[in-house]
Design a binder for these strands. Structure first.
Lengths: 340, 340
DNA sequence: AGAGTCTTCCAAAGCGCTTTGGCCTTTCCA
DNA sequence: TGGAAAGGCCAAAGCGCTTTGGAAGACTCT
């Protein structure tokens, strides 16, 4: 059932039927009702391929997925996706993932824009002066950045969490508890979130005349193994930290394992706070010693990004407003006063 | 730069240019070279919207993503996606995720097929007599099932791993080591993979005149917490198992925690084998006691599914061939002879 | 009553590609 | 040397929708 057939059986022109269906004003309400009714009864759905050829609108949002045998998509992505999908569903939006060579995403961005394959895109895990943000901005497609990029000479719309504030609070708490030697087990420090977290920790330390000791900050891909290695390396030092802030729950698993292997105990030998993106399958309260966290649902962020993308597509949102969400600090058993 | 302009500047008809570019035989090789050369020089890329309107081909593969606030996408998905994306990239395929109400995916399948939004789809986590498989089959769109569905009265193409064989081997090993009371901590037993794994364990036990004791099999969503609870419940029984087979590494984390909480030791009090889908961020060899596993890379499966989808789209693959991949049994420190 | 203004609808021109059907040359073979 | 077959190209008709530029009729106003 296409427009031609439908308009024919209604004895109306395609123009009128199309307008009736798309809510244009220049059509009699009575006629509109007839059209809408007939469309529903015959299950008419406009062919999206035809519509997009005519309008350029696709009803899809895009994401360039970095791939490569050496590239791992991290598990945060799936939680983000849950939120995004949840919103997208209720707005009839589909998501298209365009796999790209991790080292050459530009080509793919250009392609999906030139081909008008999607109405908007989002960018995640931005880095300082992120080229993707600059690119997408000049290409003129609506977009939202999940996270932030610093060092760009223009504003852009983003949704981020207050990573610096979160880790500042976490570090401040540890300092208040008497800790003097803190360490940070961070994610890849080429990414802005990691930079912000380190900044937060340093600021808290500086406020008390302290600093992050040489070698007391590690930046690694957020795997359990890296968490273990980093913790082990830190704790075997002569100036071992008495408290660790850790960028991920998965790394925290490794930290806990290292602590145990070394015959130490949390929190009496080591206080630990980790960032929790809220996974359904791994919860900080279920760590052998319940883990204190800085908590922010990455799933909600996904839903919010989808919402803003939808708003931008329909012209409801404009400009370069950035929003920063506060992060909860949740105290559990893994922190205590400094030993000794 | 569109076809019209390109053909005009080549002083050829659109027909010829189109044919030259698409490799049709009825065009002079000399002409073809000229056309291809000019197209490359001017960066001509056929508009996909126009092409799909004309041909119905989209260059995209689809996946219906179940969503809902109560629905969690599991982290396996992201690894599968890595493999899929890796293959798709090298073949200029995009992936479109269509979010759907988890309880009504049918509408979405019908939509994406009716609208010709994708050239093929894949289905994951199938259940016995899975309605999606039946639906997609009657809708007549190329598809591959990742996993298997039993109880359908027709054949269909799938790629699966030998879950039954894997857990049969695992159980057989444990039995050989003298274990008599085995337990299985499984995933959701509405899904085929879980059913197959249970079947494998039972078959191995039966071969030695044993069986899975009443209450010695748990089927739960694969979270750390559920692994803990299940293990705890099992180990506190008077007829506690001396060995556990576990369907996921994440659940195994919980099992290990439970064992520790109860003051028991692996492997002297309990032998443990878990299934490993090969995550980059959590490795069985890094468990406090290195974990024996049945191993199969879900990432490779993703790449294989993409490959078969591409083959089906281009007509290179037909029919309902199912393929079952063997699973590696990897012995590490978490298994030992039965205690006592 | 005539001019102007809405209201409501339509014919037709795109959007940019593929594909059908056909036309003009060459080439081949009896 | 004539007819068939093959090679190489083109004009035009779709694909199914949106949108432009009217046009006809009804209504208002002076």
């Amino acid at each position: 059932m296409n427009l031609k057939q439908l308009s024919h059986m209604l004895a109306l022109s395609q123009t009128t039927v199309s307008r009736a269906l798309n809510g244009y004003p220049e059509v009699n309400e009575e006629t509109r009702r007839r059209v809408i009714d007939a469309a529903k009864r015959h299950g008419y759905r406009p062919n999206p391929s035809a519509r997009r050829l005519a309008t350029g609108k696709t009803g899809m949002i895009g994401y360039v997925l970095p791939t490569g045998t050496a590239v791992d998509i991290d598990p945060h992505f799936v939680e983000f996706l849950s939120g995004l999908g949840d919103y997208a569903r209720s707005h009839e939006l589909d998501l298209v993932l365009s796999p790209a060579d991790a080292d050459d995403q530009e080509t793919t961005y250009r392609r999906i824009v030139a081909n008008r394959q999607v109405d908007a895109v989002y960018i995640s895990s931005p880095r300082p002066a992120d080229r993707r943000v600059a690119l997408v901005s000049t290409l003129g497609i609506p977009f939202i950045v999940h996270g932030r990029s610093e060092g760009l000479d223009f504003d852009y719309p983003f949704t981020d969490i207050d990573n610096e504030g979160a880790f500042h609070e976490a570090a401040r708490l540890l300092i208040q508890l008497g800790h003097r030697r803190l360490a940070l087990i961070n994610g890849d420090d080429r990414e802005t979130f990691a930079i912000h977290r380190e900044r937060g920790v340093r600021r808290a330390l500086a406020a008390s005349g302290l600093e992050l000791g040489e070698g007391h900050v590690c930046s690694l891909a957020m795997t359990e193994e890296n968490g273990y290695r980093a913790a082990r390396r830190l704790l075997e030092r002569s100036d071992a930290p008495t408290a660790i802030a850790c960028s991920s729950l998965i790394m925290a698993l490794g930290v806990v394992r290292a602590v145990r292997d070394l015959g130490l105990t949390i929190p009496s030998d080591l206080s630990l706070i980790a960032h929790d993106d809220v996974f359904p399958w791994l919860k900080p309260e279920n760590f052998s010693v319940p883990l204190s966290t800085t908590r922010s649902s990455i799933r909600l962020a996904g839903a919010r990004v989808a919402e803003r993308l939808a708003a931008r597509i329909s012209g409801l949102e404009e400009g370069a407003r950035g929003e920063v969400w506060p992060v909860d600090l949740v105290i559990r058993g893994s922190v205590a006063g400094a030993p000794g």
